[in-house]
Amino acid sequence: MLCKIISISVVVFLGFVTISEGMSLRGLGADPRCRCIETESRRIGKYIESVELFPPSPHCKDTEIIATLKISGKEICLDPTAPWVKKVIDKIIANKSP
């Protein structure tokens, strides 16, 4: 009888740990992988409404720059090595400095 109770307790505990671990990153709004698969390097500055900069993290080794377009609201990934994107990043950083 005691063996059954211990076995059931272990199974329930493992089930709880598995479910909570799978939900932990999603519940915090964190994506456990890189957001950008492809990047845009062409000059599209005049079509951009806003830009978000995501530094490297444990889940993605790359710096990711995601731009939202004015007309469609579509989000696209920008190539951080493109010269015009570097200028946009420098401008964002300069505006955030006190």
Rank of each mutant, 00 (worst) to 15 (best):
K86L: 06
P56K: 05
R35P: 02
N95K: 13
R26N: 13
I92N: 02
F13E: 07
G22A: 07
A82N: 00
A67Q: 01
A67W: 00
A82M: 06
S50Q: 12
G15E: 05
R26W: 09
P98A: 13
C36M: 03
K70Y: 01
E52T: 11
P98M: 09
W84Q: 04
T81H: 09
P58C: 00
A82P: 07
I71C: 02
W84P: 01
V85Q: 01
T18N: 14
G29W: 00
V51K: 01
L14F: 12
I92K: 11
V88H: 03
I44M: 11
D31A: 11
D62V: 12
T68E: 06
P80V: 06
V10Y: 09
D62P: 04
L28F: 05
L78I: 13
A30H: 07
I66M: 04
L2I: 12
A67S: 05
K46S: 06
I6V: 15
A67H: 00
S97K: 11
I5D: 11
A94Y: 05
F54Y: 15
S57F: 02
E64C: 03
P58L: 08
S50W: 06
P56R: 09
S41G: 10
C60H: 06
P80D: 03
V88Y: 04
I71F: 04
L53F: 11
G15Q: 07
S24G: 01
I19S: 08
P98E: 07
L69E: 00
V85W: 03
V51A: 04
I6L: 15
V17C: 10
A94R: 07
I44L: 09
M23C: 14
I48Q: 00
I65Y: 00
I65N: 00
M23K: 12
P32H: 11
F54S: 11
T39V: 15
T63C: 00
T39S: 10
S7I: 15
F13C: 13
S24H: 03
I5S: 13
